[in-house]
């Protein structure tokens, strides 16, 4: 309970930090659906997400692209950097985005979890999932589109 009051006092200090538990809950759900029984070895350059994922018992933060099972793309500069590192050759690693524009721009990204008009949105593209032989559970039906 003390946490509640401390949050009241210090909320405006840690500006724009993510809530750890709700963020982990949604990413655990997304990653486990995409990876099945594979380990969640996540590569991301997003400082906030790295901070959150450190608290996870399921997610292992990877320091290199090649050692990861999923790559989280958060910005255009991420994408440019990954392309320089010839990410297209790592075609067994699943790419997921946190920005709709990245999902639209790069065909290897299977889905995105992003903000739109103050709401979080989840979207997967069917033929891109098929390329990785990913079959999502029926509960995701409302979040899968054939194309953008």
């Amino acid at each position: 309970m003390k946490k509640i009051l401390l949050i009241l006092i210090f909320l405006n200090v840690g500006v724009y930090a993510l809530d750890t538990q709700s963020t982990l809950n949604i990413y655990h759900e997304i990653f486990s659906s995409l990876l099945g029984s594979q380990k969640m070895k996540v590569y991301t350059r997003d400082k906030e997400l790295r901070q959150v994922f450190k608290h996870s018992k399921k997610i292992v933060l990877s320091d290199t692209l090649a050692n990861s099972t999923i790559i989280l793309v958060s910005s255009q500069s991420d994408l440019r950097r990954y392309k320089k590192e010839h990410i297209e050759k790592l075609n067994h690693i699943i790419m997921f985005a946190t920005d709709y524009r990245l999902l639209k721009k790069y065909d290897n990204i299977v889905g995105a979890f992003y903000w739109k008009k103050g709401r979080s949105q989840l979207l997967f593209i069917k033929h891109r999932l098929d390329k990785y032989h990913i079959k999502l559970a029926p509960k995701y039906r409302a979040f899968i589109v054939d194309e953008l």
Binding site: V15, D19, E29
Partner: peptide, 28 residues
């Protein structure tokens, strides 16, 4: 199917409200 779909919706809703930018600026 519907119940499962609501599970994802519930997670999204929970994430939306706990990570709304206002949650970081409100000073009670």
């Amino acid at each position: 199917t519907n119940i499962s779909a609501s599970e994802v919706d519930t997670l999204l809703n929970d994430f939306t409200h706990k990570n709304d930018l206002s949650q970081k600026t409100i000073d009670e």
